[in-house]
Amino acid sequence: MFEGIGQELTEKLLADFRKCFDSELAEEFLQTLLTLMKVAFIVNHDYRRNIDTFNGRYQFCSEDGEVTIGVIFGNGRMKVVEDSIDAPHITVTFRDGRTLLNFIISPRQDILGSMLKHDVRTEGNLNYLYKFGFMAKQLQLMMPQVG
């Protein structure tokens, strides 16, 4: 799946990513996810096809103001900035790392449930969120399974 020099790093990141689901690293879920995503785009050709022609601007903010992260996709690349970005297609404001994890990904993706309970608020084009959710889900499916 992952080849060459990225393999070791990717496996470590996937392991960290998996720990997020065990709640010990839930608060760091977003940072872990974005780092893993970035590496996966570099080392995995199939995964990179997701952003070959994709332009998207995402703003993630925690409710307490502690986290403000912008993610920009363009020219087949992914850029992460720890700041506000201009004209995001979608802004996602979340209560904490755990609620964001539940919202975006798993064990049972609960986008609607999270929105109904107002654990997460969004502003903007939800289709960007759905695409992001797919890319995150793909990474989740690559995670090493616990035996």
Binding site: Q109, I111, N127, Y130, K131, G133, F134, K137, L141
Partner: peptide, 15 residues
């Protein structure tokens, strides 16, 4: 239809 996007790889086997 795009709401299906996040689960394209899992919809076949979801509980």
């Amino acid at each position: 239809a795009l709401t299906l996007w996040p689960e394209l790889e899992t919809v076949s086997d979801r509980k």
